[in-house]
Amino acid sequence: MTVKYSIRKEDLNINPYDVLRYLGYAKDRITEEDERMVDECIEEAREFLSPKACYDRYHVELMDDNRILMPYGEIESKSLSYNLSGCKEIYIFAATIGASYDRGIKTMSARSMAKGSVFNAIGAAAVEEVCDRLNEELRLKSEVLGEKLKTRFSPGYGDLSLDNQKGLFRVLDPAKHAGITLKDTLIMAPEKSVSAIIGIYDA
């Protein structure tokens, strides 16, 4: 059964260095002023954040020739087979910072493209932070059960086609549990959303 993961927007730690990195700032050229600017923008951006995520645990079966029996059917992927080696179960999760943030980027961009670009980068850093926090919670849960987790893996990585989004969305139903939807192009709406698979193996 899909479980919701809640985190308050106030509790998201968005690292200004990550934001500046997304914006292409060279590390040795970041000034104190840049950092202060991003920190201010992060607080402004926080108002638009509505972080949400959901996850569930499923069986998975690794077979010959890089074939994998996923909860939504059989697929073939060398990269995912490699990533999941030794796993009999997986978590599937989807995380987002919400639809209001898309509007936030639009509003800011209409006022200033420069600020819009900063908002865009903050959104990217924020959704990664939601993923990291959820990932950590799942790690702690598994630790208690004597399990370990692989690195999270998303459709689009390596040879795992975006088509897998359809299956992920069918079994997890993140539209219902976290307001994350799939467009016909297999891209998610809200824009700042992530879906991923995490392998579980015995420690």
Binding site: L20, L23, G24, Y25, A26, R29, S112, M113, A114, K115, G116, S117, V118
Partner: peptide
């Protein structure tokens, strides 16, 4: 040359 970054480029453009 990566001494000016995207937001700054945009600000100048504006």
């Amino acid at each position: 040359k990566k001494t000016v970054f995207l937001p700054q480029l945009l600000m100048s453009a504006e």
